[in-house]
């Protein structure tokens, strides 16, 4: 992969610009980490509040590199057969049925049981070969010739055992399939792991990754994001909207609105042909940014004050 994309990763600025061209506005910190991960050939563990664009980063990286994105969603009870590989049992069964007649030919001339078994042994690897292997996301990522971006989403939702199982793949980019051999990556995939911090990840896993914490964006960055993602929106509304969201985040809410909610809201306002914020407009569309009844009530109490502030700030 290195030889293919060295140009894109020549400098941190290049990475930042490249991600921007793929409609992902990121801080220099994110660009630096991606740049490092590429050159050190290490996975990135991305943490941060929900909806700040952790998954999006991986998707954009795939677009930036021009390779396919292979995504694995983690959940409790996820195991090897779903993540790595499985034997195609059905196909194996079908083939043995179909080849039943051939068996006679093969065994022809063999006398006694042990001779037959010896003869069969000459063919024993046929049914456990690569053509009967069903690759799951992890194996698929290793098999891609041009490299791939592997996204292991919400790793904190998986079990401890699965995390331990990931270690081999993340450090050496290889997996062992007992019946065949160790399969090594042809081109090392670019790996992103995301976590919402519902549980502490193991030291061993963290040690193998670069760590990136994406916080909620500052106003300037958020305005830029909205400008790129929702192009039709008017300048004035964009500034007012971001300012309002920033104030909203200071309240004591159960679920603080994140970037994805800001983008959704901007799209809705665009659909409603709004060109500036007003208290009525906000209270009608508040349910798009806030997802809990309690939160909406709290926000409504401060609605006028916050709207006033947002409009005032935007005027400066």
């Amino acid at each position: 992969m290195n030889l293919l994309h060295d140009k894109k990763f020549a400098s941190i600025e290049n990475v930042q610009q490249g991600l921007k061209n793929a409609e992902y506005i990121c801080s220099k910190k994110i660009a630096t980490t991606v740049y490092l991960a590429y050159h050190l050939e290490k996975p990135i563990l991305v943490e941060g509040p929900a909806g700040v664009g952790k998954t999006e980063l991986a998707k954009t990286a795939a677009a930036f590199l021009g390779v396919s994105l292979i995504r694995m969603q983690c959940y409790e009870g996820l195991d090897e057969s779903k993540a790595l590989y499985e034997w195609k049992y059905g196909k194996q069964l079908l083939y043995t049925q179909m080849l039943k007649d051939k068996l006679n030919d093969v065994l022809k001339g063999a006398k006694g049981l042990s001779a037959s078994i010896d003869k069969l042994h000459q063919y024993n690897d046929i049914f456990f070969s690569r053509s009967f292997l069903e690759p799951r996301p992890l194996l698929k990522a290793l098999q891609q010739k041009d490299g791939a971006v592997l996204l292991i989403d919400e790793i904190d939702k998986s079990d401890n055992e699965f995390e331990a199982f990931l270690l081999e793949i993340l450090s050496d980019f290889q997996v062992s399939v007992p019946e065949i051999d160790t399969i090594r990556a042809e081109t090392k995939p670019f790996v992103f792991l995301t976590s919402n911090n519902t549980r502490e990840l193991s030291e061993a896993l963290k040690r193998r990754c670069l760590h990136l914490f994406i916080p909620l964006p500052d106003p300037e960055l958020e305005r830029e994001i909205i400008r790129i993602r929702v192009p039709g929106i008017s300048e004035k509304l964009r500034i007012q909207l971001v300012s309002f969201i920033q104030h909203l985040r200071e309240l004591d809410l159960k679920k603080i609105p994140s970037i994805s909610e800001t983008i959704d809201w901007a799209r809705v306002l665009l659909l409603l042909h709004a060109d500036k914020l007003s208290a009525d407009l906000i209270s009608e569309t508040l349910h798009i940014i806030l997802k809990f009844e309690g939160d909406i009530k709290i926000a409504e109490e401060h609605l006028y004050e916050m709207t006033r502030k947002a409009i005032k700030e935007a005027a400066i």
């Binding site: 941190i12 220099k28 910190k29 630096t32 980490t33 740049y35 490092l36 991960a37 050159h39 050190l40 290490k42 990135i44 563990l45 943490e47 911090n197 502490e200 963290k206 040690r207 990754c209 670069l210 760590h211 990136l212 914490f213």
Partner: peptide, 30 residues
């Protein structure tokens, strides 16, 4: 070792970049 490699890669002329890159390699939780 990663930190050493990182510094070789990014250099230390830019303080921000230097800090961010070391932070990615060395500090692994909030």
């Amino acid at each position: 070792i990663d930190a050493m490699n990182t510094v070789k890669l990014t250099g230390y002329h830019d303080r921000e970049v230097f800090k961010d890159s070391l932070s990615a390699v060395l500090a692994k939780s909030f």
